[in-house]
Nucleic acid binder design. Structure first.
Lengths: 375, 375
DNA sequence: GATAAATATCATGGAGACCATCATTATTCG
DNA sequence: CGAATAATGATGGTCTCCATGATATTTATC
C-alpha cells in the first residue's frame, strides 16, 4: 500500500537531518545554530555538526553575525542558493520565456523571445535556443552549470519528455524536447504540460500557497486544467489528467466560441463587456457558464480547497471571477475558494523552475546529485 | 511543498527499521532472519536485534524452524497478526455487516444483520450494535480488545465521524457514528463514505491491487464514486470528493430511472436484457450511456490506471462491462482498463478494515499505539 | 559412525550519529 | 570593571548499525 519505508543506515539518518537543516534554512534568510536546532528538532550539538558538514560541502555559507542582542553574538548561516542553477523554459504560441533561477527558485535572469502561433518546429526550437543561450550568457555561465531544466509546453507530454500530441502548435507533435534541451544543458530535463506547471507554480509562489488540493483553470484562447493533489502535481497514468475539455457536454469546446462570435478580434470582448456593451456582456456570460460547467466537474470530482484561474483571460478578473463563483455555487456541493492567479504570464515558467528544483532536491536527498561542490 | 521530512533521533531510525521488518513479515508467512535481512536491507546482525525486540514486545512470534535443507536449520519468525484486532462495519440500506479482523486484515468473524431502507435511526443503530456484539462474542472478546474501528456508510461524512448528509437513509443526517461506536469499543473510530471504502478495498485486496491511481464506480440503486490517487484514498478538502453525480449533465441523476422505468421491480432488468427482451436492452443501454458519461468525466479529470465497477449491479458484469468500455472509449483520450469488482458485497467492510489498519499502523510507526502487548 | 560442508546463531569490537553537560568566550548592561 | 547573558567548543556517554569471527547444528559423503 504505502511505499517501502525502507529505514536503513545511520548515514541515511544523517542525510535526512541534512535535508531537514537545508529546508529550515531555505527561504528563512539566515539562522543561528540555536534557531536551526529548534526548527529541526535536533540538539544544538548535532545541528552544529550537520551545519559544519554542509558548510564543508558548499551547501551552506556563513552570513554576518547577529548584532544588537545581549550575550555573545551568534554566527549565522544561510543556504547557498547560488551553489547551483536551474533552468526554466515556457514554450508557448506567442512567446518563449526562459529563466535561470538559483536554488531558492529566485529568478536571476530571464529572456523573452516573441514567436507566432504559426511558426514551424525548427523555427520555434531555434527561438528556444536563443532564449536559453541569452540567459546563460547574461549569467556568464554555460550549459554545464545547469543542474536541472524544467520545460513547459502545450499538449500532452510523455514520461520521456516528448510531445505526444499538440493541436495548438503546428509540427509540434513528436518533438523530443528533453533531448533538444539536453544538447544545450546536459543535466536532467523534465518536460510537462503548461497547465500543470502553472498549477504547480500557484501552489508554490502564487495564491494557493497553503492549499494541498487545488484545481488550476487555464482560461485563455485555449482552456485547460492542472491539478495539485495532496501537495503534489497529479499527472495521471499517461500524463493526461485534467483533460476534461474532451467531454463535449462540459462545454469547454464551445466556450471560447461565444467570445470569438461576439467580436471579430477575440481580444477585447471583456473590455466591451466591462463597458456594458450588450452583445459582449452576453458572450462573456455564456463563456463563463461553459467554463464553470467543466470546472464544476473537476471540483465535484476532487473537492479541492481552492480554484485558481489563470491564463490570458485572468487579466479580466473583474468580469470573470464573480460570475464564475456564482456558477460554481450553482452546481457544486461545496464551492471552494475561487482566486485569480497572481503570477500571470510567468506562472508556467515558474512551474518549470519548481519542477527542476524538485528533481534537484530529490537527488540531494538521495545523496547522489551534484553536491560535494567545487570547493 | 513536501511535508517536513523531519529526520530526528536515533530511536526514530530503530522505529523505521522495526516497521520495515514488520512489513517484510506481514503477508509473507514466516521468514528466517537471513530473509528478513535481505528484504529490509539491514545487516543480519541488526535484523536479529530488531526481531528480538519485536519478539519481546509481542509483535512477532517464533514459527517452526525450516526443514529439509542442508546446514543448521534456521529459526523462522512470523508477524503476530493475532496480537490485535480491528473492527470493520458497513452500514447500508439493506444490511449491516460487521467483521472482526486480525492485524493482517484477515477476517476472523463476521455477522450480517438484515435491515430495511426505511428503518429509522435508532432501529438501525441498534442493528449495528447487535452485529458488532455478535462479532465480539463469537471471538470471545470485548470492546476493549479492539485497537481501531472503521465504519462505512452512505452519505457525506465529516472529519469527526458524523454523517453530514444522507439522502438514502431516513433520519441518518447528523448521526455521530464515531461516538456511537466508541461507546462499544473505546479505540479510535474512523468513519468514511461507502464508495470511498470500496475503492480502498479494491486497491488492497481486489482487482486494482497494483494500481496507484484508480476510479471506483458504485453502480447500484445509488450511483457513486471513490478515488484512489497515488496509492492513497482521496478525500478532498471537506470529504466530498467523487460527488460528480451532482452535475445533471453528467447523467448520474437520471441513470437509474431508465432501469426502473423498464420494469416495475428495479431488480432484474439485467436478466431481461440478457434474455434479449427489447425494452430491457434499451433501458440497460441508456443506463450505461449515462453511467459512462459521469465516469468519463472522472477518467478525463484524473487519467487513472484502472476503473473498477462495483455495487449491486456489478453482478451483471456480462451486460455491463463491454458496453461501458465502449462508451468510455468514445469520450476518453486514453481509456483505462475496466474491471469488475472481485469483492462484491464485502468491498465496503473490507475498506473499513483497511482504514482501521491504517490507523493502527500509523500509531505503531509513531511508537505510541498499543504495542508493548500483554506479555 | 566420523568427517566435511553448509548454514545459522552468538559474541565482540568498532564506527557513526545523536545528546547532555560543562567549561570557555564574547558581548551588553549597570 | 564586574555581572549577566548567550553562543561556542570539548568531553563523554548511549544508541544503533555493521563487519568479522567463533560456535552450534544439521546434512552429505566416505
Amino acid at each position: 500500500m504505502t511505499g517501502e519505508p525502507s529505514g536503513g543506515d545511520l548515514s541515511r539518518l544523517r542525510q535526512l537531518n541534512a535535508v531537514a537543516v537545508i529546508k529550515a534554512l531555505q527561504g528563512q534568510g539566515a539562522l543561528t545554530l540555536t534557531d536551526v536546532a529548534r526548527r529541526t528538532g535536533l540538539s544544538r550539538a548535532s545541528a552544529e555538526d550537520v551545519v559544519r558538514e554542509l558548510l564543508h560541502k558548499g551547501w551552506v555559507a556563513e552570513a554576518g553575525a547577529t548584532a544588537g542582542g545581549v550575550g555573545r553574538p551568534a554566527r549565522r548561516y544561510r543556504f547557498r542558493a547560488d551553489a547551483g542553477r536551474v533552468l526554466g523554459v515556457d514554450i508557448g504560441g506567442h512567446k518563449i520565456l526562459a529563466v535561470l533561477a538559483d536554488l531558492d527558485g529566485d529568478v536571476q535572469h530571464s529572456v523573452r523571445v516573441p514567436v507566432t502561433p504559426g511558426m514551424g518546429r525548427l523555427e520555434r526550437l531555434e527561438a528556444v535556443d536563443r532564449a536559453v543561450a541569452g540567459c546563460l550568457e547574461a549569467a556568464g555561465l554555460t550549459g554545464a552549470d545547469v543542474w536541472a531544466s524544467g520545460v513547459g509546453t502545450t499538449g500532452l507530454v510523455d514520461g520521456a519528455g516528448r510531445v505526444m500530441l499538440s493541436e495548438a502548435l503546428p509540427e509540434w507533435t513528436g518533438v523530443d524536447l528533453a533531448a533538444h534541451l539536453r544538447r544545450i544543458a546536459p543535466a536532467p530535463v523534465l518536460v510537462e504540460n503548461d497547465s500543470k506547471l502553472a498549477a504547480l507554480a500557484e501552489c508554490w509562489r502564487g495564491v494557493a500557497r497553503y492549499a494541498k488540493d487545488m484545481v488550476f483553470l487555464l482560461a485563455g484562447l485555449r482552456t485547460g486544467a492542472g491539478l495539485v493533489i495532496d501537495g503534489k502535481l497529479h499527472r495521471g497514468f499517461a500524463n493526461a489528467s485534467g483533460e476534461i475539455g474532451a467531454l463535449p457536454v462540459l462545454g469547454w469546446i464551445r466556450a471560447q466560441e461565444h467570445l470569438s462570435a461576439a467580436s471579430g478580434e477575440a481580444g477585447d470582448v471583456f473590455a466591451a463587456a466591462r463597458a456594458g456593451e450588450r452583445a459582449a456582456v452576453t458572450a462573456v456570460r455564456r463563456y463563463v457558464k461553459d467554463l464553470a460547467l467543466g470546472a464544476s466537474a473537476l471540483v465535484l470530482a476532487l473537492d479541492p480547497q481552492m480554484v485558481v484561474v489563470g491564463g490570458g483571460f485572468s487579466r479580466s478578473a473583474d468580469v470573470l471571477i464573480e460570475p464564475l463563483r456564482r456558477e460554481l455555487d450553482r452546481w457544486c456541493i461545496r464551492t471552494p475558494e475561487v482566486r485569480m492567479s497572481a503570477l500571470g504570464d510567468e506562472a508556467v515558467v515558474l512551474g518549470a523552475v519548481r519542477l527542476a528544483l524538485d528533481d534537484v532536491e530529490e537527488r540531494v536527498l538521495d545523496g547522489r546529485g551534484p553536491l560535494v561542490s567545487h570547493l
